[in-house]
Amino acid sequence: MHRTIKKIEEDTERFSFNTAVSTFMICVNDLADLKCHKKEILEKLLILLTPYAPHISEELWDQLGNQGSVLDAAYPTFNPALLVESTKEYPVSINGKLRTNIELTLDLEQPQVEELVLQNEVVQKWLDGKAPKKIIFVKNKMINVVI
């Protein structure tokens, strides 16, 4: 959500309204996929959307039980700290061939990573019960399992 706030604000400031519309679409798709129903997040989205689609924003704002008009709501601010990525989707290769992806938090070190990789279904299928010769882990980049 903070990424969306930042992007919409930047796009609007530089009159790049077409990219802002795309950002809204992506954001709503993501929220729908996540089945996100948190009021505080949805409210922020409405305020961002108000300049673009004022009628639906005002209606939904009203339905959320807000007092007053969305026209005068306080524009949400984004927290830059939250924009730092905390996880990464690592590509996992087996003998150099890309086989799957695993999402891991960035603070993990080699032993924890090895443990999690070996639990992965796809990796287990390729290992077929054998132990790997080696697991190469390059932080923030990739994982390679050598059989």
């Binding site: 609007t12 009159f15 309204f17 305020i47 108000t50 300049p51 673009y52 004022p54 026209l71 005068d72 709501a73 306080a74 524009y75």
Partner: peptide, 8 residues
């Protein structure tokens, strides 16, 4: 859009 944005 810009006017409403500035108002917010």
């Amino acid at each position: 859009i810009y006017s409403r944005y500035k108002r917010l």
